[in-house]
Design a protein around this nucleic acid. Sequence first.
RNA 1: GCGCCCGUAGCUCAACCGGAUAGAGCACCUGCCUUCUAAGCAGGGGGUUGCAGGUUCGACUCCUGCCGGGCGCGCCA
Length: 586
Amino acid sequence: MASLVQELSQIVGAVFVEWGLPAELGAVRVSDRPDLAQFQCNGAMAAAKQAKKNPRAVAEEVVARLQTNPAFAKVEIAGPGFINLNLTAEYLAGYLGGIASDPRCGVATLAKGKTVLLDYGGMNVAKAMHVGHLRPNVIGDALKRMVRFAGYNALGDIHMGDWGLPMGQIISEFEIRNPEWVYFKADFVGPYPEEPPFDYGTLEEIYPQASNACKEDPVRLEQARQATADLQNGRPGYRALWNHFMKLSIADLKKNTDALGVHFEIWKGEADVNDIIPAFADELKAKGLLVESDGAQVIEVVADDDKKEIPPLMFFKSNGAQTYGTTDLATLYERVKLYPDLVKIIYVTDKRQNLHFEQVFRAAKRAHLVDKVELVHIGFGTLNGADGKPFKTRDGGVMRFDMLLDLARQKASERMKEAHLAQDLSVEEWNDTARMIGVAAIKFADLLNQAHVDYIFDIDQMTSFEGKTGPYILYQAVRIKSLLRKAGEFEADSALYLQEGDRALALLLTQLPEVFAGALKHYTPHVLCDYTHRLAQEFSSFYGNCHILSEADESLKASRLQLCRMALAQLTLTTSLMGIDIPERM
RNA sequence: GCGCCCGUAGCUCAACCGGAUAGAGCACCUGCCUUCUAAGCAGGGGGUUGCAGGUUCGACUCCUGCCGGGCGCGCCA
């Protein structure tokens, strides 16, 4: 199914071809000047440059042919050679009618049978999920939904931090506190207990204490390092203890990500590649890529045309231990083997890891691991407080994730009370609606900002029902739902009669395919947010200025209800791509 | 020292591959509720796009040099 802009580009492109010009120059796009026209084509200027002709003369040749086309109500040349186009109401209505009942709202499927893996969790074992985990989860999940909607088999991998020094720090801390536990007895032959002798809260508490102890005391740090090495070498008691960490942590992470509405298909972590690392290292050695440097084993990643210094990827530290470079590269190696249809891996992490991923990607290319796989790193910016510095709680701490969601829910609830909204809801419905609005507020605000820039986290602003916010979008969508409920049954494929007041909304509804394609191509969900907001606003304007239920002309009423239904369908689709749900009432 | 990112309205942010008069939201001002959810709608004011050059029909966008802010640069992840 071609989008409207594609249809128009074909028409205009064909005319360019008639004049011996490339069809691509006939590309039509939505006009920059809606006061002058609905659509424009800039190809005449480019063609004139190539053929060294007068742009207006070229445009005139093209326009002469277009004027006879029944699709256009108006074809004009403006300025240096812009071709401005307006559609007839019939043509526009005909196009919209064609996508009215399309569950994809006119967006074509772009791919089939190919797998894209997204690595976006990055949460750590034994460490409470906090505000810093918001962006990778929200952005990664949205990108995954977009990739999936495009037709790919999209897999989200949480890639937990479960194998580094923190594990050794916690294990050694437990060993100091509870040396009598069977996990630490060298002569114990098992089996180890099924249930851990501690709960998740204890684990969460112990980690920062152990971490601090190691910072202050080199001897303590050495203990932790040794424990890490022993764990990685498979010491049974440590592995049994580590299994407890995993079980408790995953349960807690699931609770948090479920509350946020973010999901993972793959719950793997750094530890999962531990066993393949020796063989992988041998392969790298055989390829001559693993070289010694200052006692460590590294992969050089400098290129001849590099202007900057780029350090090698650290594969084995001088003490033989792994780094996150080791596990990231080995994970890549495993993923490529595991998913034969893999065409792309998208990593969503803090942008401060830019250099690390450049190193990993270069190493992977040198090792020919990814000859058929594209690697993409989306580095996101910092979440700042009102002072422009990294967001902290009042007492200077890091806000826990569950606190963050609860804060958003509370704020949403306050706003609902202020607005006297949803007063007839039951307590359960009220709380659930407040929760949905809170999550929508946070996700929309996060996605609205370009991923790579830092942004100011302002909970009052993002939960506001006014302005470019999640709640505003939901509010408009709920108004449509309410309207459609009142309208009752109506002809599903009613013909569209586009009056003056309906035109702007109708025109906007044709733009989703290009918006989606652009957002997907550049990995920019904020483009989708912007469109969603424009659509909500355009609907609101339409709603404020046009009679719908009270419209006496039955066919016009049906046509307007059809527009409402399409607007709701698109709002539902675009918000779902952001991981945002729309309540029935609010 | 080297490298990456950012600098646009009072504030928070957009601007598709170099296109027309740089757009939204907030805040401010003026109208509109006996009609479908007024936390809505209609309208208004507000800009030397950090600075200085360059490339061309045309630059927020590309190039060079400055100024200001953030971040990174082998054995943490």
